[in-house]
């Protein structure tokens, strides 16, 4: 008797799993992780954590000041990135770009800025600015321009061509088309991506100090390097509090706008 249900298509899942396991094995072997003693490392780590006994809030005003600087770096970096990305994304949207070559070039610039980690940029900027928050702001804005620019451009491409056509049919200028058809249609995407970037930038700014680009990371690196664990603990608590607060804030803004 013939069965009504066609035979189940061959599943590739086991093959995939096997391949991934094989790959992981190869990586473990190549990085010589087998010589690594997990139990010993666990003991080392718990011993290390136990050194963070009691936080010392002696220098709290200084930490709070530097945390404020961290947020300031993130705010300036995000704002610069937002302004540049908003003006540049038009050129990188396939349907609005004045010329295919312009589209390709700006897209590629955005991708490049997005691909290079902010920390790598920060290192370069410290070479020209010297130690200080300026390098942090520049690094964060460059990376942000790449991220926001590409994401805005992709949003603009998703807007229905009919919306643009309506504006073109009344004889609107290219810029008016962008301001009246483009930006309002992607407003939600803009808010979402910008909040995400700010969130991420506060996080990033907190670690930029490790390479000397200002903010709370500077005393943290110092405290860790000099084995001042109670200071390091206090700084970590300040960072943790701020990051949880910004995440909560942007989450609630997003929810209200959704």
């Amino acid at each position: 008797m013939e069965r009504g249900i066609p035979p189940r298509p061959r599943s590739w899942l086991p093959l995939w799993l096997f391949g991934i396991l094989l790959l992981c094995g190869a990586i473990i072997w190549k990085l010589q992780l087998t010589q690594f003693n997990v139990q010993e490392a666990g003991q080392d780590f718990s011993e290390y954590v136990s050194r963070y006994k009691s936080p010392s809030f002696q220098n709290l005003p200084e930490y709070l000041g530097l945390m404020f600087q961290t947020v300031a770096i993130a705010l300036w970096g995000s704002s610069i990135a937002l302004v540049v990305a908003m003006s540049g994304c038009v050129l990188a949207a396939r349907n609005l770009s004045p010329h295919p070559a312009v589209y390709r070039i700006t897209r590629e610039i955005f991708s490049f800025l997005r691909a290079v980690p902010d920390l790598a940029f920060a290192v370069l900027f410290i070479m020209s600015f010297g130690i200080g928050p300026q390098a942090g702001v520049c690094a964060i804005s460059l990376h942000g321009i790449g991220f926001l620019g590409k994401s805005f451009a992709e949003s603009l491409e998703r807007v229905s061509p009919q919306t643009y056509q309506g504006l073109e049919s009344v004889g609107a200028h290219r810029w008016q088309t962008l301001v009246y058809a483009g930006f309002p249609s992607i407003q939600q995407d803009i808010v979402g991506a910008t909040l995400y970037t700010f969130d991420r930038n506060v996080r990033m700014a907190a670690v930029l100090g490790i390479v000397g680009a200002g903010g709370i990371g500077v005393p943290l690196k110092e405290a860790v390097d000099l084995f001042r664990y109670s200071d390091a603990f206090a700084i970590l608590i300040v960072i943790l509090g701020t990051l949880l607060a910004t995440e909560f804030m942007s989450d609630s803004i997003r929810r209200r706008l959704a």
């Binding site: 490392a41 780590f45 011993e47 290390y48 907190a206 670690v207 490790i210 860790v224 970590l236």
Partner: peptide, 18 residues
Amino acid sequence: VMRAIPDLLWALAFVAAV
């Protein structure tokens, strides 16, 4: 809480430990 601490700080701690 685990999310709030950036990966670079985790790395810093792990390097110091192991």
